[in-house]
């Protein structure tokens, strides 16, 4: 017993920042970013906090599903760029919705939406009375970026994505891997103002080793998709879409090449939104669902990778 996805929603802030806009504040160019990352523009929040974007995506997912707030048994949310460490973002979204159900966050960086789905599946299995769970990934990545570091600030964007899950049988399989450590990707907290703590800390922004991240990402996508296909005795022809974490178009293209899968099988919208971390998979899933190119009964694979290092993929019947 697992779940089926009965509604999706997304929200991105209205301000679009183009590559040319960024070239005004950091040494870069539209050509460089387009070629090396695949991003043309990203949305940047001017006055909305992360949980407020998450709330808007949640409201859209609920509307899409026809599920009422009072029907929810749990809200699970994820972010690496929330406006508060406490309360958790899920509690802020719960408050905004006027919900009274369980609410908690799961932390797994860019892979977090996959971890939310797995957590939801576990709760459906454990709590036989649970019927509906809301999952939300929301990020204000612009708040954890160093806008003098051209290697990172051009990659990310802000936004939120959500899905409403209903007890069902459509979450068919999943694979999750965590390697541990902060040497490849990290976002440190600030050190605070304690006069007794003397250890130096990196700046509280995204720090990423580009080549190692690329290698890890391509390897994880390749292995996770192969595992799901093999374990379920499927071929790529049985899969309607692969919805990957939108980290870098080149990661997706190279993984497709190594897998021998057409790039068109991978749903991509990174050129519009950049890398929105935990929000990227649900935003992509919502756009795909609303595009009319995803049909009930289709088998799809969601896959993600990121800080942790944590990567995951799942096989779903839409």
């Amino acid at each position: 017993m697992s779940f089926r996805i009965v509604g999706t929603g997304m929200y991105v802030p209205p301000k679009a920042v183009t590559n040319d806009d960024l070239a005004q504040i950091v040494e870069t160019s539209d050509e460089w970013i387009s070629k090396r990352v695949g991003v043309k523009e990203r949305r940047i929040s001017e006055n909305e906090y992360t949980s407020e974007m998450g709330l808007k995506a949640a409201e859209k997912a609920l509307e899409d599903s026809g599920v009422k707030v009072e029907e929810l048994d749990a809200i699970f949310a994820a972010t690496v760029s929330g406006e508060t460490s406490s309360p958790s973002m899920s509690c802020m979204i719960q408050h905004g919705l006027g919900a009274t159900c369980l609410a908690m966050d799961v932390s797994a960086a860019c892979s977090a939406f996959l971890f939310l789905l797995e957590t939801a599946a576990a709760f459906f299995a454990l709590h036989k009375e649970y019927q509906k769970i809301l999952v939300v990934g929301a990020e204000r990545m612009s708040g954890v970026l160093d806008f003098t570091d051209r290697s990172t600030c051009v990659i990310f964007g802000d936004g939120a994505g959500a899905a409403v899950l209903e007890r069902g049988e459509n979450y068919l399989d999943s694979v999750m891997t965590v390697k541990g450590g902060d040497d490849v990707i990290k976002i440190p907290h600030g050190n605070g103002s304690c006069p007794y703590f003397i250890r130096e800390q990196d700046t509280p922004y995204v720090h990423m080793q580009g080549q190692e991240t690329f290698k890890y990402a391509v390897t994880s996508i390749t292995q996770d998709i192969t595992t799901l296909l093999d374990r379920n005795q499927l071929t790529i022809d049985d899969i309607a879409w692969i919805v990957p974490h939108q980290a870098n178009k080149r990661i997706i293209d190279f993984a497709a090449k190594r897998l021998g899968i057409a790039q068109t099988k991978f749903f991509c919208n990174i050129e519009k939104y950049g890398n929105t971390s935990s929000a990227s998979v649900p935003i992509a899933l919502d756009e795909l669902a609303k595009s009319g190119n995803l049909h009930r009964g289709d088998k799809i694979i969601l896959c993600a990778f990121g800080g942790g290092l944590a990567n995951a993929a799942c096989l779903i019947t839409w």
Partner: peptide, 11 residues
């Protein structure tokens, strides 16, 4: 050739 091209080649 940029750093990601080199990483692709290395893999």
């Amino acid at each position: 050739i940029d750093s990601l091209d080199l990483t692709e080649m290395a893999m």
